[in-house]
Amino acid sequence: MTAVTETVRTPPAIRLRPRSTVAIAVAAVAALLAFCWPLLVSADSVLATNTAAPLILGLVLPVVLAVVLFEISEGGLDPKAVAMLGVLSAVGAAIRPLGAGTAGLETVFFLLVLAGRVFGAGFGFVLGATTLFGSALITGGVGPWLPYQMLGASLVGLLAGLLPRATGRVELLMLAAYGAFAGLLYGVLQNLSFWPYNLGEDTSISFVPGAPLLENLQHFAVFTVTTALGWDLGRALTNAVLILVTGPAILATLRRAARKAAFR
């Protein structure tokens, strides 16, 4: 009985063509630049003054996301994949408020990781973006933070689809470990991007434009350890536990749906 669900592999719901792979790679580099900008920025940059940064990055990042999503969907998506994306992001958007804000309890990522695993990397990428976008629209939470969250969640879903082959208990442990790692990294990256806004320019753990990388890293480390590490660890733990507990049932359900859909 279990052997069936473990061995049957379904084709990815959204096939990544070489062009979309290149687009995702370039976008990942751009996303990394956007997340790590406080560490990279030099003193004479227009972003160093901290007023232009949220506006410039807030305009550039949605364009990057739009281009990548366009490249992935160019040439047509399977309507079954579109419908599956829609309902899975609805489920994600519905369970997101359950944990939001309470001690880092993050209830979206486990679904994102499991769906990315079953439906493939391209689907995971798009699902990350649509889940957070839909959730923001429903709760009225569109703001300068949204592109960062969408990019972060997209990368979490993408990497979940790229994990190596494994079955049974090994697969479950691998997914849980990945969920914990992704939750932690997502938190640190989000902190990094909002560190300058949160703190302002003139505190002793603020970012100093153009200062040596090590000095800024030290300031950031103090800031993130003292403020957000509890939340990030909470998120990592929630992900791992939720994946371990719900993983077998949800993986089987999703694989059944993928087989029934028979993506072309």
């Binding site: 999503l69 969907s73 047509g76 998506l77 579109v82 419908a83 994306l85 829609g86 309902v87 992001s89 609805a90 958007a93 798009v126 973006a129 649509t130 889940t131 976008f133 839909g134 629209l137 429903i138």
Partner: peptide, 11 residues
């Protein structure tokens, strides 16, 4: 359009 459809379905 297609990604937008997915978001419409989700909402």
């Amino acid at each position: 359009h297609e990604v937008g459809t997915a978001v419409v379905v989700s909402v």
